[in-house]
Simulated assay, not measured.
Amino acid sequence: MRLAFLGTPEFSVVVLRALVDAGHEIVCAYSQPPAPRGRGHELKPSPVHAFAESQGIAVRTPSSMRDPSEIEAFAALQADAAVVVAFGQILPGAVLEAPRLGSYNLHASLLPRWRGAAPIQRAIMAGDEQTGVEVMRMTEGLDEGPVLSTATLRIGPLDTAGSLHDRLAAAAADLIVRTLPSIEDGSAVARPQAEEGVTYAKKIRSKEARIDWARPGREIDLKVRGLSPFPGAWFTLPSDKGPVRVKALLSAFEDVDGAPGVALDDRLLIGTGAGAVRLLRVQREGKGPQDAEVFLRGAAVPSGTRLD
């Protein structure tokens, strides 16, 4: 098929690569404009932009797909269909309907649960036991279109947003490759989303990342894993030079009692408002991620230490 592809982050690259490998013709890849990255704040292309160029695929990076010139250029591609994966812009109806067979979004949740910007993180933070990815025919409403196909995944007790992201990306790539033939031959069945059970996955805000040890331990564990690796739930650890910020990247709930924010042993078991949280992987400010046992070799946290 002649496909237009719209996506920006690494999640999208996994899908684009699968479409290329399956033999589809990508007539153009759209992505968000280059943005400042790294310590030097140099303008760098998005993951999709970089991958598409490496494959010889034409790339466009419009600041707005509502620009009349961009709508005209998109229609001129004469694509059979558009595949949209975490593009980062709301697409107008004129863009959605330009491809001959319509535009299709891969969304990382079981709709109508977790419509919106951060479905992977919010599913973990809410304690969901399963999630998935769905191929949806796009409408102008936010993730409201009918669903054509679904892949369901279990959320494990040690899953993080990072690990779940990778599994969902692989599932998304497989799902769209299997679904496109039925879109092409007209056999695909689009089922409307349920009207009940709608939830919205709000964008993650930095103020959410600080750990409040007075909250229940199960809630803290879900926050740690849902915000890992980025932005990373964090706390401060006392040191001779003052408080040091530490990100918690992996944890596990333990059903033991202890004062909130106090180390209950010498291996990063921290008391909470209900139960305790075992920190399994952390990242000290200015350092790389470390397993707890490695971290503790250079920064002992003895029983009784009070965290902020």
Results as ranks from 00 to 15, higher is better:
P45V: 11
V13P: 08
L168V: 00
L106M: 07
K44T: 14
I26Q: 11
M138R: 13
E42M: 05
R210W: 00
F235P: 08
L3R: 01
E129N: 02
S228K: 09
S239H: 01
R225T: 01
A79E: 03
V301L: 07
D21K: 14
K223C: 03
E97A: 07
A190V: 05
A209Y: 09
G162V: 00
I183N: 04
S251V: 06
K203G: 02
K223F: 00
M136K: 09
L296D: 14
E129F: 02
V20E: 07
H165W: 00
I220G: 02
R191E: 15
W114C: 10
L168P: 00
E134Y: 01
A190S: 13
H24F: 07
A252S: 05
G197K: 08
S54L: 10
H107E: 07
V133C: 13
S54H: 09
H107P: 12
T272A: 12
G127A: 03
S149L: 02
A201Y: 13
Q283E: 15
R100A: 15
P231G: 06
S187D: 04
A248Q: 04
R297W: 07
M65D: 04
I71T: 04
V133N: 10
Y30P: 05
P289Y: 03
A50W: 00
R245V: 12
A4G: 14
K203S: 05
G271T: 06
V59E: 09
A188M: 12
R137H: 14
L264F: 11
R297E: 15
G288A: 15
G217K: 07
L222N: 09
E219V: 11
T8D: 11
V256W: 08
L307V: 04
K44V: 12
A259S: 12
P45H: 14
Q130T: 13
M125W: 10
V13R: 07
W213N: 05
P302N: 11
R122Q: 08
G56E: 08
Q55P: 01
T236N: 09
S303G: 08
M136E: 11
R113L: 12
R137Y: 10
R205S: 13
L158W: 06
D240P: 07
F235T: 15
I155V: 06
R267G: 02
L96Y: 00
V282I: 15
A209T: 13
E134T: 14
A170D: 00
L279I: 03
P99L: 13
E285Q: 12
I176D: 09
V27I: 12
A151F: 04
A209W: 09
V177C: 13
E195K: 04
T272C: 15
P36K: 10
F5A: 04
G273Y: 03
L227K: 05
E72F: 02
Y104H: 14
A259R: 13
F235N: 07
I26F: 13
F87S: 02
T152P: 03
E72H: 06
F51W: 15
R306P: 01
T199P: 14
